[in-house]
Amino acid sequence: MRIKTLLVSCATLSLFVACGGDDGAGSGYTTENADADEGEDGDTMGESGEDTDGSTDGDSDSTDSGDGGIPIEPDNMIDNFEDGDNALIPNGGRQGYWYTFNDASEGSTQSPAEDAVAPEMGGAAGTSMAMHTTGSGFAEWGAGIGIDLNNAGDPEGMTNGVKMPYDSSSYTGIVLMAKGNSQIRASVQLSSTIPPEEGGTCELDCDPHGKVLLLTDEWQQFTLPFDELNQEGWGSPAAWDSSIVVGIQFKAGKDTDFDFWVDEIGFY
C-alpha cells in the first residue's frame, strides 16, 4: 500500500471532514468551534508516529447556526463531490485529487483503496454525494484522507505529484460539513510543514497546523479559522502563512475503528 506522509522523519499526516452513516443530511447544521488538540484518550494526536500526553486548550462547543451556517460562495467551493469524481472543483486556479493515507500497520484495512478514491451517495444538507472513509488496525499514527489545492498529480492516485503553494491569504478560513463515529484532526498543510520530497521546506518533524473536530452521527458544519489553527507542538515550529497553503488532510488517530465523512468544503 502506498503511504502518503505528512511529516518527514516520523512519517505522519492529517486534514477535510465527514460522518458515520450511509444516510443523508441531518436535520440541521451546527457549527463546531473546537480548538481542542487532544487525542481520543487524552493524548495529543501527534503525526510523528507517537502520541504525547496533553490536555485540550479549550472546550469544544457545537452551536446551532439557525440560518444554515456559513454559506460558501460558488467560486470559493473547494469540493462538494456532486460531480462524482475524485478531483476538486477547478475554481480559482485550484487543482488536485483526493487521496487516502495511512501508517501501513500489518493487518490494517482502509476503504476506499488508494487507487479507487471516489465520493459515495449520502451527502450533507440534502445533497447527493460526499467523501467517506473507514478503517481499523492502524497502530502507529492512524489514517485519513486529503486533498491538495495546487497539484496536477495523477487522477489514478499512482503518483503523488508535487504539492505547490496556493495563495489563500484573501480568505478567513475553511468551512466544511462532517460526521463520523469519533474525533478526527483536520490539518491545513503549508509548504513549510511538508518535506522537500513533497515540494516543501520542512527538514525534520513536520507538524502541520490544524484543529480537532468532534464528530457525531449527524452532519455538522465546522470552521477552520486560519488565525486559530495550531501546530501540535511535537515538531519543527513554523509560522502560519496563508499564502503558502498546499492542502487539507483529515486524520483518525491510531488504534481507532474509524468511519467518517466530509462534504461541502470551501473557503470563507
Rank of each mutant, 00 (worst) to 15 (best):
F16T: 03
M177N: 15
V212D: 09
T193N: 05
R2M: 05
I72R: 00
P225L: 02
V8E: 12
M121G: 12
K251Q: 14
W234L: 12
M1E: 06
D51K: 05
V117T: 09
N150C: 02
D35A: 09
N181H: 01
P195A: 15
L176A: 13
K163I: 01
I184Y: 09
I194R: 05
G24S: 11
G210K: 01
D207F: 01
E232F: 09
A87S: 15
W98F: 15
W240K: 00
S55R: 10
V245R: 03
M77A: 06
E47S: 11
Y99E: 06
E203G: 12
G54D: 15
Q249E: 13
N80A: 10
G39A: 07
G26Q: 06
P74L: 02
A152N: 09
Y29D: 13
M177D: 14
T31H: 06
F250Y: 06
S48V: 07
D51E: 15
T12D: 14
G49V: 07
A252C: 10
P112C: 08
A238G: 09
C206W: 06
P208K: 07
S170I: 00
G142S: 08
D257P: 07
V17H: 08
L229W: 05
T201Y: 03
Q231F: 11
P90V: 01
G123D: 03
N86L: 08
A186M: 12
I248W: 04
D53H: 13
H132G: 02
A25C: 09
P112L: 11
V245A: 04
T31Q: 05
M1C: 05
P74A: 12
H209P: 04
T100M: 13
G21D: 12
G247R: 04
D115G: 08
V117A: 09
I78T: 01
P196D: 10
G142Y: 09
S182G: 14
D263S: 14
N80L: 05
T159R: 06
F138I: 05
G92W: 00
P196S: 12
L214H: 13
D59S: 14
A139E: 12
D241N: 15
A130Q: 11
S48M: 11
S48D: 15
D255N: 15
L13E: 11
A130N: 14
D167S: 00
V8C: 03
Q249S: 13
E140L: 08
G93T: 00
G66Q: 07
M1H: 09
A152M: 07
T201A: 13
F138Q: 12
I244C: 01
K254G: 06
S108H: 03
G144T: 05
K163V: 00
